[in-house]
Amino acid sequence: MAYNHKVELSKPERFAPGHRLCAGCGAGIVCRGITRALDEGDKAVICNATGCLEVSSFLYPYTAWEDSYIHSAFENASAVCGGVEAACKALQKKGRLNEEYKFITIGGDGGTYDIGFQSLSGAMERGHDMVYFCYDNEAYMNTGIQRSSSTPRFANATTTPVGTESLGKKQEKKDLTVIMAAHNIPYVAQTTFIGNFKDFHEKAHRAIYTPGPAFVNVMAPCPRGWQYSAELLPQICKMAVETCVWPLYEVVEGKWMLSYEPKKKLPVEEFMRLQGRFKHCFKPGNEWTIEAAQDYVDRKWAELLARCSQS
């Protein structure tokens, strides 16, 4: 059935209002989008890595989650989810559980690209029937905007500050989506919030309803870390896609497929100029940083196109 935004938004909310996430935060949008992608009546268990989302959505004695939810630590959300899934299989086999559940893990880039990477890689390799959603806001936002391996080059973060000898982060962003595709799992996708959420919704639904392990990387901007005014969130996501900084694509059973190709690929500065974290790149004398950022995006985009055309 074709995606209908109005119909999807009329579903009962499974991520309730009242959580403490900031206005303009991408994480809450991710959670609403994921739970909306569950077919009505289908049950789920949500596992969550420590981070902004966890400390903002489940503060004793309140929870924003209408589904069963478990958080235990920063680096182990995938292993916990694998444990829940294994438990359900055992209980079903032994006749002590009749219902079916969907198993969903959500983590930020810190809990996914970095400290939780081993746990994620292990759970995916073992083939648990689960989906890992990364809400990628490109730094450790919960502890106050420290760089992660997902932080892009030149971004100003509190552990890669701009100074007389520094132009922000020195390293390029780790390409986790490609790494997860290399795990040869049934479904990998990259998405963000575009237009009426069709791309995000369809990928989340496909991931949840694909048997076996799946990974979805969602660019989820952070107004504090990226330094933008909350109402600019849709514009930033749009520019991330139109500049090919964050291409939308899927890898289904090893087949690479581009979800969207900009008619005219915009220069990367259209994405960067919206955000205070790249402000220093626009100062006279620092033009080379924007050129370097453009070169990197061009190279990664060419690689992706090649993968998709070869598939």
């Binding site: 478990i70 235990s72 182990n76 694998g82 294994a86 390799e125």
Partner: peptide, 26 residues
């Protein structure tokens, strides 16, 4: 046995798997 035998990639994950499983009622 009818046990789900989960061959994790570390002890941190073995205890984490137990945490998830026990919270699920297993």
């Amino acid at each position: 046995v009818g046990t789900e035998y989960v061959t994790v990639e570390s002890e941190h994950s073995s205890m984490s798997t137990c945490i998830g499983a026990a919270a699920a009622g297993a």
